[in-house]
Design a protein around this nucleic acid. Structure first.
Lengths: 220, 220
DNA sequence: CTATTTGAACTGACTGGTCAGTTTAGTTAG
DNA sequence: CTAACTAAACTGACCAGTCAGTTCAAATAG
């Protein structure tokens, strides 16, 4: 029985100076994350073998099981890792001043950048997110909640400043925007590479602009 | 050597009177469609075995290979079958008179109903749609095009009557709405069953209402 | 009306191969 | 010394696709 670390993601949080303890860098985990993100994004979690992942990461199969307890764990940690990155980007948008609509637009832009940079993560997410009895059900529920909370609070900021359409529930709007980010980002990657970042952001922002009220829509 | 049919979907097109020729009904194919839609929607194409599909359909494994040439073919035909149903519903919305925005809203409502009725198809779609070298790449491209065309023409109808935001490209908007339909529908099924059809439609329609212009968006 | 034939539809055991996960003995580097 | 990692062999399960054989309803023959 190998004494594996198998723990959380590659935090390396409070280990500044010492240089030795945290077992070198987490370069191996990082490489495994990158390799599996790529492969799993392309062919799905079930379509990729542990051997392939190990080879792609330039590492032996045993190392995968040393660093992660199982294929399933690897994927769960991969999901957390990706969401951590996305969350960091979304939270980098400082709401403090200015127009909350502009903040929203910047957040969507950050999301589009993320999708462009980590399309494989986006594919993994949409591939596995809605499976009903899934090994990662709880992981997804938690991560989804964390992401939606950020979007939700951005929507709240808008609703606090602008008059909004009360017929649109915040929850549904969150979901629609969140989902649109993934789908528009992926579609751009797969089917419409000529589409610009701005076009994509504008299309998603349309729902925010429709959320803030104008005069009642002109009874045709 | 069995002379297998393996052909297109369960058409039975022009064989009205004669009663005998078209080899009974296509009951078997239909049952296989239903069973595989369910299973594949839950666990993904790679996660389901042909044996399972056969058993769930109350049929032997050989029958699957008799009716379809391979697991891959089965899934390709399954995709076509589902899209045919969805397309039929979208096209059932008659555009002829009235407000194109109302037509749009009804189309989105139809899409939500479809997602509620065939959540497994929706899961299959989002699971496999954006995989890069996929066996069904061409199938997806074709079907996606057909669906987007319908949505696109509905958007055009709106743009023909209302003044719209020219900063939003039709293509991106199509994609955003199309994607939002799937994602909102699936999310409702998986995470928010309490959400009503109307809430979901309203959230998606927000993007259309943001697409038609009001006074230029209030330079904050 | 009965007997025989045909062939499409279907069956399920079997094959060849794959894969997750384990184990072990050894290597490297801090 | 020890944590991290390697390389390779192995197990036990699982699975896509095949194929020789069965069933039965309709067509044909007598």
């Amino acid at each position: 029985m190998t004494t594996s670390p198998s723990g959380g993601s590659l935090a390396g949080s409070g280990d500044a100076g010492k240089k030795l303890r945290p077992a070198r860098t987490n370069a191996t985990k990082q490489k495994l994350f990158e390799a599996s993100m790529e492969l799993i994004g392309e062919r799905g979690a079930a379509g990729v073998t542990v051997d392939e992942i190990a080879t792609a990461a330039g590492v032996s199969k045993g190392t995968v099981y040393y660093n992660f307890g199982s294929k399933s764990d690897l994927i769960a940690q991969l999901l957390r890792h990706g969401v951590d990155i996305l969350l960091a980007r979304l939270l980098s948008v400082r709401d403090d001043s200015a127009d909350p609509l502009a903040a929203m637009e910047e957040m969507i832009g950050q999301a589009m950048d993320f999708m462009a940079e980590y399309p494989s993560f986006a594919r993994l997410w949409v591939s596995e997110n809605w499976r009903t009895p899934s090994e990662w059900q709880d992981t997804f529920a938690e991560l989804r909640g964390r992401l939606l909370a950020v979007i939700g609070s951005a929507i709240d900021s808008v609703a606090a400043v602008y008059p909004v359409d009360s017929g649109v529930s915040r929850g549904s709007l969150e979901t629609a925007i969140f989902g649109a980010c993934f789908v528009v980002g992926l579609d751009r990657q797969t089917y419409n590479p000529e589409r610009t970042r701005e076009q994509s952001v504008a299309a998603i922002m349309a729902s925010m602009r429709g959320y803030v009220v104008k005069q009642p829509p002109a009874q045709a």
